[in-house]
Design a protein around this nucleic acid. Structure first.
Lengths: 125, 125, 125, 125
DNA sequence: GTGGTCTAGACCACG
DNA sequence: GTGGTCTAGACCACC
């Protein structure tokens, strides 16, 4: 799994990290039980403050996506897949709804938005 | 033109005010040359601190959407329509792009997104 | 004497009116004892709020440049010429000093400024 | 770089702060990428309300002179030098033009002004 | 009446 | 620690 963050994005770095984990787990890129990078390792790889990774991991753990194994690092939780699939859906939906609400209140029609989306649909990375 | 703000939104109140002006001007709800509510009036109407309105107005002014007539309030700038139309497009596009990028990186296909949007398209207010 | 104001200038309209009177009197365009436009007339001519003209006239009167003749309007004061000449000097000097201070603190040399001034010297109107 | 403000000046404190940054950057006193004083630090140093510094920094940021690194303070932007050099020129020119226009309309000749300037040229601080 | 500036102090998210 | 936003209330200049 490849994690990348955009430090200049509007969305907080720790949230970017979280989303990427959620997406990776939901997609099956990482399996339940699999060990994940340590805080220090990931922080070094992303060139990011370790505290930021700590926060992302804490929230992921609180939500049951990862679990800490008594001083041996952290791994993907057993039931992470279900949670992540649901959460992925929720993240995407929320963001899309906001964008649509704004487009609508800006006076755009459904047709216009649909056309625009077809043009803007990002190419696979 | 009716302005409403959600004080508990993620997006700052002064930005909400700005967007609504941009959209209202772009839609022709208010004409260039037309006087807008005074800082105190709008603050009272929105139940918001006057300074918050001041900030929104100042940013709108420096972007050329409104102009201040010393001691006589503020009015929609002569060339506000062009600016606002362009900016509206930009605001909506930016937000949509981010949402689509996320949907894409979450593994959704263009078809799925399009379907989802048709279902989620907000009803006119 | 021709008075013109720039409503969008940084300097207050009433000050613009005052300066122009000072300059006109100092230049001899209007003579002591000569009647000046009434508040209403000047306000109409400049398309300006009468209160603004009132303020300009009040300050001019307070400084001895014009005097009100019992309900018959206002006229240039007897000793206005001396006062205005002195004041004109002061106005120009103050403004120039500020500009030079800024230029200097911006790192420009005297030579640069002198050159620049020769190029920028406004053509007679 | 030493920043000083005159609290009793006509020009707003936040503008004084901005100008000093522009001049300092244009002069190369601070380099692109260099970290600048935090809001609280500068506010304490100038004995000024932090919000005043915030305003100055925000306007400098939106004009591309400095950039904010979330949670890590602000630094001089990469292309700040170009912007600041251009802006410095503009600030000085505008102020000088106004002063010259006034001097001219007061009836002074170019020679008089040049002489006056040589006498008034402020000594280096 | 209008906008413009400043202070004081609070709370928040982020790293 | 950092910046970002908001409130409250004050004073000012201008029209």
């Amino acid at each position: 799994m490849n994690i990348r963050v955009r430090p200049d994005s509007q969305v907080p770095i720790y949230e970017q990290i979280m989303s990427q984990f959620v997406f990776a787990i939901a997609a099956g890129d990482v399996q339940p039980g699999e060990r994940i990078l340590s805080v220090r390792e990931l922080a070094a790889e992303l060139v990011v403050n370790p505290n930021t990774v700590v926060r992302a991991y804490q929230e992921l753990e609180r939500d049951g996506m990862i679990t800490s194994k008594r001083g041996m690092g952290m791994e993907v939780a057993a039931d992470a897949l279900t949670i992540c699939a649901e959460r992925r859906q929720r993240i995407v939906l929320t963001r899309l709804r906001e964008a649509l609400l704004e487009a609508s209140s800006a006076g755009m029609s459904l047709v216009e938005v649909t056309t625009l989306i077809s043009n803007e649909w990002p190419k696979p990375l």
